[in-house]
Structure formats: structure tokens, C-alpha cells
Design a protein around this nucleic acid. Structure first.
Lengths: 204, 204
DNA sequence: ACAGGCATGATACGGATGTACCAGGAGTCG
DNA sequence: CGACTCCTGGTACATCCGTATCATGCCTGT
């Protein structure tokens, strides 16, 4: 078993243990020792593969981002119509099933962490939202081109608003204010509002 | 000075010290000792007035809620028209000035805390959002009555969406993705979108 | 086959935290 | 006047954390 454990594989194993703990007991419970136990390795091993705890946190965070991105891709699937793509993107973020609940929860934990240590994460995770918002805005503009959305809407503003709304809805679900279904209902309601069938003879 | 320090006054002094620390250095930096130092009292005093740390956290949280409510009342002022009330409520939450930034930041810290200890806060802070959402929905319905908003809109859904959006915008501001002005711009854009009977006039 | 280095285990160290304990001062009421 | 109760201070204790240190094994290259 000690034969060439493939550095990367070990790192993945440990980082995912961290994420597992963060999702269930919160990030503050993810001590080095707890991660080691969860991953089934010794404390020294965790220290070896990730010299410092910050290193471990950053690496795990990057993997979390990859997981979310993969989930989004999966939800988008082969959808090509802008409305479907937009719906898929936004719905995939909402904590409706166990996976998304786990991801959202962990993301929030990291968010709280970055608020306490404002400089720790430079743009490791800060660039993502802007990219996503830009992509979303482009999809909305495409929908405008094809007549699905009123052309007078500001795509950038709408994208920002939708993303913020989904984010807020996720928080409310995690906070127990409503469940995933209700959150999804709010989202789809607003998407229906946005993609309203334009009345014949001009917009209302 | 040792004469009847008025229990309540002392508690306020200490709890506000906790909030001050939470707003600047994060909740995790708000140790008993740090709070004591910030409040200018001895550690024993903090222990005396709030037996346990959880007691202190809960008390401070209640005061934070009061502060936010007071701010909202102040922003609403003497506004009576539904649109103005709605705008005031939502804008007051957004981290645009130092006070709201402090409040939002601290609220977020508590939110992260409650995610780790799901049972600690029963409904101490869980009832508030629902009440606010109900109030907001009622204002929206009033706006529909007076013709400010399309009568076919679902007021409940809209209220939930707006609140979630403001919440998400606040997070993005705290995360450094945009500043308070930009967040306010997104909000007002959506409010303009909502409150338009049929007249597409010039925008500001 | 042997040496060198990568990988792993056990444990120690300094610091911080929440809470408990002991001791004393001040005001009040018998 | 004396005792009792409410406050306040100083400090100790047990625990957990991240990290560092020492020692040892196994694989590989030559």
C-alpha cells in the first residue's frame, strides 16, 4: 500500500475528506486531525501533502469549484436554447438535491471564512462569479436576439439580479426558511416573468 | 462606580463590544477575552453577566436584529406610498454605507454560525425573514391595488424573489465582487422594471 | 547490494479558548 | 454592629488547534 500512492490521488482523497466534513459538520469542525481521521490517514500525512492548513483549504476549495462547474455542465446537458441554458445554470446552483445542498453549504462556509480573512483568497474564487455572470448575460442577450426576452431589458443587470436571487434563495434554503422545491418555484416564477411571451403588436 | 451598575446597561455595553468585534474582525475573533478587552471590563465580568458564551452570542444577536429593524424604520421614515416603502426596505438592507455594511457583515457571520450549529438558534432569528417577507408582499399588493404594479403578478413570489436578490447582492458586496453603489443600481433597476405600468420613459 | 531520498508514524510544543474556582470589597438589612 | 448577598478581580485548568521534530521504513537507481 505504500507503493507509489500517486501524490495527486492522495491529495484528492484528503481534500475530499475535508469537503465531506465541511458539508456535514461545518468548516470550523474541519481540523487537521479530523480531516486525517476522516480520510483514514495519519495527521502527519495531511501535513505532508498539504504543508499548511491554508494550503489544504485552498486546494479543497478549488476542487469544490470544479465539482460545481461539473454539476452545471451536467445540468446544461445538451440544451442549446438560451432559455433552457439559463434555467439549467440557475437551477443547478439551487440546493434542491443532496449534492447541491452539500455544495452550497460548503461554499457558504468558505464564504464566511473569506469574510474573516479578507486577503487569504485573492481571486481564487472571486473570478468565478464574474465569469458566470458574464456567461449568463450573454445567454440572455442571445434570448433577446431570438425574441424570447424583451429587447429593452438590460441583460447585464438582469443577469446580476438573477444570480443574486439564486444566491439568496440558496441561503434561505440552508437557513431552513423554505425548502428546495419552494426556492425552485420562486426561481421559475421569475424566469417565466422574464421570458414572457411578447404580446402581438409590441411589448406591454 | 461599583454602585448598582444597572445590569442591563452593562449587558448592552458588553454585547455591543461583541458586535463591534464581529463586524471588524469576524465572529471567530470574538473570544470572551477579546470582548472583555473591547468592552473595557474584566473577563470575569463578561462571565458574570452572560454565564456562557452562547448566552452572549444570542443576546448580541437579538440586539443586532433590533438595530437592523431600527435602521429600516428610519429609512422608511414618513414614506407612505407602497413603492417608496418597498424601496426603502430593500435599500436599507443593502450594504451601502458603513452602518449597513457592519450589520450585513455581522448578520452573515451569525448565519455561518447557525449553519454549523443548526439547533442553537431555534427561531430567535428565523421568524424575522418570514415576517419581513409577509410585510413586503402586503406592500406589493397595495401597489397592485393602486395600479403601480401589474395586477397579474404574484405578490408573494415577487416579495420572496426581491428579498433573496437583496440578500444575494449583499453577499456579493461583502465578497468584494461589486460595491454598494453597483448593488443598489441592480436593485433599483429591477424595481423600475417591476413598477412600470406601461410607460417606458427615460431612465436616470 | 548499498546508499540516498521520499514517505510515514508517533509525539512534543506553544498558544488560544471556554469555563471554573477562590478571594475580597461594598452596600444593605437584621 | 454584624452578617449576608451582590459584584468584581485574578488565576487556574482542561482541551483543542496548527505546526515542528525526531525517527524509521520502503523504494529506486546504479
Amino acid at each position: 500500500m505504500t507503493t507509489k500512492p500517486d501524490h495527486e490521488e492522495r491529495r484528492r482523497q484528503i481534500a475530499e475528506a475535508l469537503l465531506r466534513i465541511a458539508a456535514t459538520d461545518g468548516l470550523k469542525s474541519a481540523s487537521m486531525r479530523a480531516v486525517a481521521t476522516e480520510a483514514g490517514v495519519s495527521l502527519r500525512l495531511v501535513q505532508y501533502y498539504f504543508t499548511t492548513k491554508e494550503g489544504l483549504l485552498l486546494d479543497a476549495f478549488a476542487r469544490l469549484g470544479t465539482q460545481l462547474q461539473a454539476r452545471m455542465q451536467r445540468w446544461i446537458g445538451d440544451a442549446r436554447a438560451p432559455r433552457e441554458v439559463v434555467t439549467a445554470i440557475l437551477s443547478s446552483i439551487l440546493p434542491t438535491d443532496e449534492e447541491s445542498r452539500r455544495i452550497t453549504r460548503t461554499y457558504t462556509a468558505y464564504y464566511a471564512l473569506v469574510l474573516d480573512d479578507p486577503e487569504v483568497m485573492g481571486r481564487t474564487g472571486a473570478g468565478q462569479p464574474d465569469l458566470l455572470e458574464g456567461f449568463l448575460a450573454r445567454q440572455l442577450r442571445a434570448a433577446q436576439e431570438s425574441g424570447g426576452i424583451d429587447r429593452e431589458r438590460d441583460a447585464g443587470m438582469t443577469a446580476a439580479g438573477l444570480l443574486a436571487m439564486v444566491n439568496g434563495l440558496g441561503s434561505s434554503v440552508l437557513g431552513g426558511q423554505r425548502d428546495g422545491r419552494a426556492a425552485l418555484a420562486v426561481l421559475t416564477h421569475h424566469l417565466d416573468e422574464l421570458f414572457r411571451p411578447s404580446a402581438p403588436g409590441g411589448r406591454l
